[in-house]
Structure formats: C-alpha cells, structure tokens
C-alpha cells in the first residue's frame, strides 16, 4: 500500500478525506488497542488532517496520541 500524501487527501471530497485517513489510521490503532480501536480512531479523526498525516508517518506521535485518547476516555467513563 502506497503512503497517503497530502495531495491525495486534498484531492478527495471533504467528507471522504477523514474516511481515507481513518482507513490508514485504524489498523495502526488496532495494533495498539484492538478493543477500543473504532472509538479511538474516531476521536483522533477530529484532529486536523495535516497533523493526522504526520502521525501516520510517526509511530511515536501516533502512540502518544492513542495513549492520550485512552486517558481521556477513561476519565470520561469515570465521571459517568
């Protein structure tokens, strides 16, 4: 699978852009946390596309964001 580039994303329709990025992001998130991969990917997709593209290229920053999303989710669940 060829890497997703900013120009590929820019060429897509606005509602397709996040889906395109999500398709790449989901398997990576799934490797880190399979049970919450759908939820965590959905949370990460609210981040700017340009930042998401950088995260796809950087396992360290992706990992940090997944951990951050998990912490936010756990804090949210604890409040309910």
């Amino acid at each position: 699978q060829e890497p997703l580039t900013a120009s590929m994303v820019a060429a897509a329709l606005p509602h397709e852009q996040k889906q395109m990025i999500g398709e790449r992001l989901y398997p990576l998130v799934y490797e880190i946390h399979s049970q919450l991969a759908n939820k965590i990917t959905g949370m990460l997709l609210e981040i700017d596309s340009s930042e998401l593209l950088l995260m796809l290229e950087s396992p360290e920053s992706l990992h940090a964001k997944v951990e951050e999303a998990l912490a936010v989710l756990q804090a949210h669940q604890a409040m309910e």
Binding site: Q19, G22, E23, L25, Y26, P27, Y30, S34, N38, K39, T41, G42, M43, L44, L45, E46, I47, K65, E68, A69, A71, V72, L73, A75, H76, Q77
Partner: peptide, 21 residues
Amino acid sequence: RKSTLNPNAKEFNPRSFSQPK
C-alpha cells in the same frame, strides 16, 4: 495540559480492514 480529544467523538467504521483472528 488539558487534552483536546473529545470522548464523545463518533466511532470510526473501517470499510476495508478485516480484523485479524
């Protein structure tokens, strides 16, 4: 620092990814 991530975000449903068994 407070996270900007939203715990109420909609779940993402992949079209193409098949989950490994």
